[in-house]
Amino acid sequence: MSSAPILALENLTMRFGGIVAVNALSFTAQRQQITALIGPNGAGKTTVFNCITGFYKPTSGVIRLTHDDGAQFEMQKLKDFNISKQAKVARTFQNIRLFPGMTALENLMVAQHNALMRASGLTLIGLLGLPSWRAAEQSAIDNAVFWLKRVGLIDRADDAAGNLAYGDQRRLEIARAMCTGPALLCLDEPAAGLNARESAALSELLLSIRSDHATSILLIEHDMSVVMEISDRVVVMDYGVKIAEGTPREIRDDPKVIAAYLGTDEEEAAAVMEAEA
């Protein structure tokens, strides 16, 4: 197993016209850890995510991903779809992006596109319905069923994703990301809009993904109880720069962090205080 961190950002900068959304940001995410990226609204967290997952091309800087076997990828050089296909980075979206007109099961099948594409011999073998294709399809279904059970949606497998409740959709999106077999899972506010019970279930799910499936997680989250509970390491951003980094305990006591939150959003600062108490 490689000793390098799974993800290393070096001097990542992203400009939109004259606005600097992310400024010379560097941090690392360790292998099989949960790294949380927090900060007030507009701090540039989602921009960082979009750079990592290939939706934006960073203005400058390097985003380096190292697999367990030592294979390295520089994400800023990869084509968007190869970030999932080759570098094995999966993500979820702040505003859930499922395929609403397809069933939960179909959503998870789409996530296994590249593996199935190979198995179907770029469609030809599949069109003929050869046994090797059937076996591959069955194992893809099995994988989908596993994740549907894991997120508690097995009863809704044949329902349209657009018909699921909000919290179910969030979990389905995570299951879909996991079906791509990621080395790094990037979650953009997975707890947003969830109630306390659902948040607790989410924490449990993420911890299990980290430990049982050897997947590293990078997480943007506003719900401090979730962040404090499950993160191994926390990176705090404000105005596009990193203002603190450390364990949840260190971050909680960092006056700079509290000031950043108090200066911008009282509610969230209160949440920090609460978590502290």
């Binding site: 779809f81 979206f93 395929f99």
Partner: peptide, 19 residues
């Protein structure tokens, strides 16, 4: 399935590694 997924949400398709 990729065609239909494309119709549903192109951004999500890219995130799932679909060319």
């Amino acid at each position: 399935r990729a065609w239909e997924a494309l119709r549903e949400d192109e951004v999500a398709c890219r995130a799932l590694g679909i060319n």
